[in-house]
Design a binder for these strands. Structure first.
Lengths: 162, 162
DNA sequence: CAAATAGGGATATCTATTATCCGTAATAAC
DNA sequence: GTTATTACGGATAATAGATATCCCTATTTG
């Protein structure tokens, strides 16, 4: 069970978009080049972010993506769920229902106890992702990335932002 | 991203094995029939449990599986990891390394900040699974399953346990 | 009008999951 | 000892999902 690589791409892209000046947009092409990933496929991830309402888009030359809100309003969970979907990672196929000792027409009282535990773990995962905002990531990156690289990356983006 | 159905099977099988009297074994065939899942494929999941040391096996007629320890010594995480593997659910492909602004031969200081957050969430998931013991599940099931069904299921198993 | 863009659909490729089959060694019952 | 039954591992196939590419359309900028 491994998350799509698009999740990683989307997170990094949002981190870049978070540094974009007000009203500017960055294209799929620029984001793909910056991260060294295939443009066409990255486009699908960005469309997922768009459909989830996390980013705004504009068409035409100088078009592209910008965050729909502030980095503090966007959580890791928002981004992960936009790309990966909101479905639980554990699917209950209710195999207890195959128990040969069950009386005919027996009706379940509630969700399977096994599934409930797995779903609680799933929720713990989501809770953690919900607790980290994009702005937290930016703060961390600002501390860890050398000032020189931070600056040149910002300029690289500005040159291509419409 | 969805867990293997074998995870569900393994959890339910362990719940059954937990009720097995001391020194008795239950075969793949019986476990497969009880849960209504393909015997050959379930066998793979049980082999994973065996390789992880969670269950003991015996060959020959009246052979099969029993828990290696007590239900209180076995956690959900043990079972999930035995089947699903211990690998993290988020793989960092280090796409930050493709940043065109990076100086030649630039060396990472540590793990990517994005990956660290994703891995923390992964750990939160594992922490939750580690906190629930198989004995906890049995306690829950004992409360929720009608006494009649509980008893008949136990007898069904006993008839087939070697 | 021309160029560049997001968006969507169709399609292909690759990988992981799901599933089945068969041979081998070990064990228990007879 | 013989036979039946079992776990185990390897090989293989079928299916689904992830990864990736291509093309067409509508829209916007210059």
């Amino acid at each position: 069970m491994i998350l799509k690589s698009q999740v990683e791409w989307a997170l990094h892209c949002c981190a870049i978009l978070a540094g974009l000046p007000e009203g500017r947009y960055l294209s799929t092409k620029a984001l793909a080049e910056f991260h060294g990933v295939p443009k066409e496929y990255l486009s699908k991830a960005l469309q997922s972010l768009s459909q989830a309402g996390l980013v705004h888009t504009t068409l035409g030359p100088s078009g592209g993506y910008r965050l729909a809100g502030t980095p503090a309003e966007l959580t890791f969970l928002d981004i992960v769920e936009a790309v990966e979907g909101k479905a639980r990672t554990f699917v209950c196929n209710n195999i207890r229902a195959n128990n040969p000792c069950r009386p005919q027409g027996y009706c379940e009282s509630g969700a399977c106890a096994v599934a409930r535990v797995m779903w609680e773990a799933d929720e713990a995962w989501r809770d953690k992702l919900r607790s980290v905002r994009l702005s937290d990531l930016i703060d961390t990156l600002a501390k860890e990335i050398p000032a020189e690289l931070w600056k040149s990356s910002f300029e690289w983006v500005l040159e291509r932002a419409g």
